[in-house]
Amino acid sequence: MVQAINRAMFEAMRADPNVLVLGEDVGVNGGVFRATEGLQKEFGPDRVLDTPLSETGIVGTAVGMALYGLKPVAEIQFVDFIYPAFDQIVSEIAKFRYRSGGQYPCHVVIRSPYGGGIKGGLYHSQSPEAYFAHTAGLKVVIPSTPADAKGLLLSAIFDDDPVLFLEPKRIYRAVTGEVPDGDHRVQIGQAATVRPGSDVSVFAYGAMMPPALQAAETLAAEGISAEVVDLRSLVPLDEAAVLASVEKTGRAVIVHEAPRFCGFGAELSAILAEKALYSLKAPVVRVTGYDTPFPYALESLYLPGADRIAHAVRATARAA
């Protein structure tokens, strides 16, 4: 997946001289995950900027660049370090268009690896998408396959709105797949029904997709048909796809690695309660990280895995 992300940036920078990349260690070093490998060599240090160690500065200056028509793609090395830039993202980027009556759109793309599974402890594992999805005016996109990563990132770079692009670093290299060449785009705001099924809907995104699919495979052998939907974009959310799936199956399991309380699953549950209650045959179930800070030694217990997901889907399928 990380190569697909890298290729998306190559494509975008070749296609449009206004695209520019900035962040810590993104140039000479090619990014600590090598997502920006080779970019500085091809496009030079003025378009691929190794910045000082200041997320505030990275995002704040990206805003100014965007106001002047550049298309900055800012990298935050780990999303756990995004909080110094929270001010710029929440108070500035997400509100610029609105507060200026449309005079100053602020199209910044912020890429950042998120999530656990690399033994990163409290500060290299977080999954903070809910904070950002709660912010009006900001799109939040999370791919789970290499092809989607390229297609969604290209769409994000050429979108009109600011996009927080969260990359599941745990599957940067673990997940492989065909990636179309050239200007391959995937529309932001469309979920993908990756595995159709009839008994239970499983909603997941990012690094939770592989265990969700694995659980579905296990359950198929037991005669339970799970439909797995990759949300791909949290804002805007493909509500139609979510509702259609539950109207069909009548049962829903929501999976994310972020803590449960006020996590994105709470929003999905609320939507199902508001708009699909009469289709539901069983309570909605969430399989999530626990409401603790992300642990180091016990991360495999903290993270939902295929077994935990299958366990929950099984129970949901059997609930009267």
Binding site: D80, F81, L122, Y123, H124, P295, A297
Partner: peptide, 28 residues
């Protein structure tokens, strides 16, 4: 491990020991 006073919660090198007036480090 279980001997770790951080209870295995932090990455290596992110330690702190109150009795040595050495405050627990974070990554940011």
């Amino acid at each position: 491990n279980s001997g770790d006073e951080m209870k295995g919660r932090q990455m290596p090198n992110h330690y702190g020991y109150r009795r040595f007036k050495f405050v627990t480090a974070s990554s940011p």
